[in-house]
Amino acid sequence: MRAELRTVHIRQIAEYRRNNRYPKDLKLLFPPGTKHGDSIAARGILLEVAADGQEFIAWGRTVSGWVLGIAGKHGSPMDYLYAGSDGPPGGVESGCWRTDTPPDWRGMD
Score class of each variant (00 low, 15 high):
Trp105Lys: 07
Pro23Arg: 12
Ser64Asn: 14
Glu4Leu: 14
Val92Phe: 00
Thr62Trp: 04
Met108Leu: 10
Phe56His: 07
Gly87Val: 13
Thr7Lys: 10
Gly53Trp: 06
Ala41His: 12
Trp66Asn: 13
Ser64Leu: 10
Gly60Asn: 03
Ile70Pro: 00
Arg98Leu: 14
Leu81Trp: 01
Gly84His: 04
Gln12Ala: 01
Leu28Tyr: 14
Ala71Lys: 01
Gly44Pro: 04
Trp97Ala: 05
Trp105Val: 05
Arg6Tyr: 01
Val8Lys: 03
Tyr16Trp: 08
Leu47Pro: 09
Gly53Pro: 10
Leu5His: 00
Arg6Ser: 00
Phe30Leu: 04
Arg11Lys: 11
Ala50Pro: 00
Arg61Glu: 15
Thr62Gln: 13
Tyr22Leu: 08
Thr7Val: 08
Tyr22Asp: 06
Lys73Trp: 09
Ala14Pro: 01
Gly84Asn: 06
Gly91Ser: 07
Arg17Phe: 00
Asp109Asn: 13
Gly84Cys: 07
Glu48His: 13
Arg2Asn: 06
Leu68Asp: 00
Glu48Phe: 12
Asp100Gly: 14
Ile40Met: 04
Pro102Asp: 06
Leu29Cys: 09
Tyr16Glu: 02
Phe56Ala: 02
Gln12Gly: 02
Asp79Val: 01
Phe30Pro: 05
Thr99Asn: 11
Tyr80Ser: 01
Val49Gln: 15
Glu4Trp: 12
Lys24Phe: 15
Lys24Ile: 14
Gly65Asp: 07
Trp59Asn: 03
Arg98Phe: 10
Gly33Ser: 07
Arg106Gln: 10
Trp66Glu: 11
Leu46Cys: 11
Arg2Ala: 05
Tyr82Ile: 07
Pro77Ile: 03
Thr7Gly: 02
Ala50Gln: 14
Ala3Thr: 10
Asp38Ile: 03
Ser39Ala: 15
Asp100Glu: 12
Gly60Val: 05
Lys24Ser: 15
Ala50Leu: 10
Thr62Asp: 12
His9Asn: 01
Glu15Pro: 03
Gly65Lys: 08
Cys96Pro: 00
Arg61Gly: 04
Gly95Tyr: 07
Glu93Tyr: 02
Asp25Ala: 15
Pro89Thr: 03
Pro77Leu: 05
Leu47Gly: 04
Thr99Val: 12
Ile13Ser: 00
Asp104Asn: 13
Trp66Cys: 04
Asp79Ser: 12
Ile45Arg: 06
Ile40Trp: 07
His36Asp: 15
Trp59Cys: 08
Asp104Cys: 08
Thr62Glu: 13
Lys35Val: 14
Lys35Tyr: 12
Pro88Met: 05
Ile70Met: 01
Phe56Asp: 08
Thr7Tyr: 00
Asp109Phe: 08
Gly95Arg: 08
His9Pro: 04
Arg21Glu: 11
Tyr82Trp: 08
Lys27Trp: 13
Ser64Ile: 14
Val8Phe: 02
Tyr80Gln: 07
His9Arg: 05
Gln12Leu: 06
Ile45Trp: 05
Gln12Asn: 02
Pro102Ala: 06
Pro32Phe: 15
Pro23Asp: 07
Leu46Ser: 12
Arg11Cys: 10
Thr101Gly: 03
Thr7Ile: 06
Lys24Glu: 14
Met108Arg: 13
Thr99Gln: 14
His74Glu: 10
Arg17Thr: 02
Glu93Asn: 09
Leu26Pro: 09
